[in-house]
């Protein structure tokens, strides 16, 4: 269909990098989101305030800016932090680490809301029952809330994952050789922008489609034994 002029392998390599980046963001972002939700629902006012600020700021600034600021700003901050801890020398984030950090912060901000909603969706009665048999709050969270959280949060997290897969394209601007950057390199070499950006689009659509099928299966599995939950 397309004449990729030998750049096909490069595009596939780029797509692999895109998938790796997206999966890393999913892992780190989920942890951030869980922490954010716990903070938002906590009794401590400073924790709630910190979490509110985090979600408001990260959801209101373009992802492109966040990626750029983390990449260029992190080394100064990290080096200062390391020096404060008595470590001299230079620390920095590679484009991959900076990309994961930036997109995870964004993912976490949205996931905070997803998890908050999911925690609130767990019937009060279950928590009261657990408290009644003598579980402390920690144990209630670990044994009652957390295991059920996934089922409720899965559709929301799935959507966020689809969004962040596309956001990985922004990491191309800080030099990570993922799919979009590979397509841009190929365009520069061959002067055929439509061909390569369309090829990249097809690869993104493939990644999206596979993810959608995977999410569908995961949702089915998560809601097994819950006949009312099936669509």
């Amino acid at each position: 269909m397309f004449d990729l002029k030998g750049f096909g392998d490069q595009l596939l390599l780029g797509a692999l990098m895109t998938v790796g980046l997206a999966l890393s963001v999913l892992c780190v972002g989920t942890i951030l989101g869980l922490a954010g939700a716990i903070a938002k629902l906590s009794k401590s006012a400073p924790a709630r305030f910190a979490a509110e600020t985090y979600t408001a700021v990260l959801r209101g600034i373009p992802e492109l800016l966040i990626v750029l600021v983390i990449y260029f700003g992190s080394s100064g901050l990290l080096t200062a932090a390391a020096e404060a801890m008595g470590h001299d020398g230079f620390v920095e984030l590679s484009p991959f680490a900076a990309g994961v950090t930036a997109l995870s912060l964004v993912f976490g901000a949205y996931a905070t809301e997803v998890f908050r909603g999911a925690i609130l969706a767990i019937p009060k009665g279950q928590i009261e029952a657990a408290r009644a048999i003598g579980m402390n709050r920690r144990l209630v969270f670990l044994r009652v809330t957390l295991p059920q959280l996934w089922r409720v949060a899965l559709p929301g997290l799935g959507n966020l994952f689809l969004v962040s897969q596309k956001d990985t394209a922004l990491v191309s601007v800080i030099g990570l050789e993922e799919l979009t950057r590979k397509a841009a390199f190929a365009t520069g070499f061959t002067k055929a922008p439509f061909t390569f950006y369309m090829a990249a689009a097809v690869l993104y659509l493939t990644i999206t489609s596979v993810t959608m099928v995977g999410l569908h299966l995961a949702e089915r599995r998560a809601s097994r034994g819950m006949p009312g939950m099936r669509g």
Partner: peptide, 14 residues
Amino acid sequence: AIALAASLALAGPA
């Protein structure tokens, strides 16, 4: 903390 910082930072001394 330093170990954490070091593992985050994929490149060591410049």
